[in-house]
């Protein structure tokens, strides 16, 4: 039985090792952040951090991340305090429907952890594998740059 360390807590999930991480997180651990979008690592809506790296949970099996530290959107807020990215996305009203926002924030978290003061070009490049159909990309880029300034 795989043990998953998610948002700082280690939990059993009663699923086969080859279960996509996305379903274990959403259905077994009842987390809302990661979203099903394409099931093929094309859109980024399901992104979570595994040991700080943004991965597509729809194509990552539970067995490959056992024991690693998994962070979802919910896990970014600590001690009742929102992550700088979460605050910045609110400040910039950086979305319309918000379905893709989970993945965008998670990928941006990895970027800011590695490159605390990215250029606008670096932000766009980092987010290029994430699709937003509402057309809120520029707001999201502004939000990431704001988080870098204020974070």
């Amino acid at each position: 039985m795989p043990m998953l360390k998610v948002n700082g807590r280690t939990q059993d999930v009663r699923v086969p090792d080859d279960t996509p991480l996305l379903y274990a997180l959403r259905n077994d651990l009842k987390l809302n952040g990661p979203k099903y979008g394409c099931g093929a690592a094309q859109c980024g809506a399901c992104t979570v951090l595994v040991d700080g790296q943004a991965v597509r949970s729809c194509v990552t099996t539970v067995g490959t991340v056992t024991g690693q530290s998994i962070t979802t959107l919910e896990g970014l807020s600590t001690g009742g305090k929102m992550d700088a990215l979460q605050r910045a996305f609110m400040e910039e009203q950086a979305m319309q429907c918000g379905y893709c926002v989970n993945g965008i924030i998670m990928r941006a978290r990895q970027l800011l952890d590695q490159t605390p003061k990215p250029t606008e070009g670096e932000v766009r490049l980092a987010l290029d594998g994430h699709l937003c159909r509402c057309g809120a990309q520029n707001r999201m880029v502004r939000a990431v740059l704001r988080a870098a300034q204020e974070g």
Partner: peptide
Amino acid sequence: KDVPRLDIPAKVTGERIFLHD
């Protein structure tokens, strides 16, 4: 005037707001 959208806080924190959730 610009009033912050009511649905955005839940969408940045992963609180239940989508039908999917």
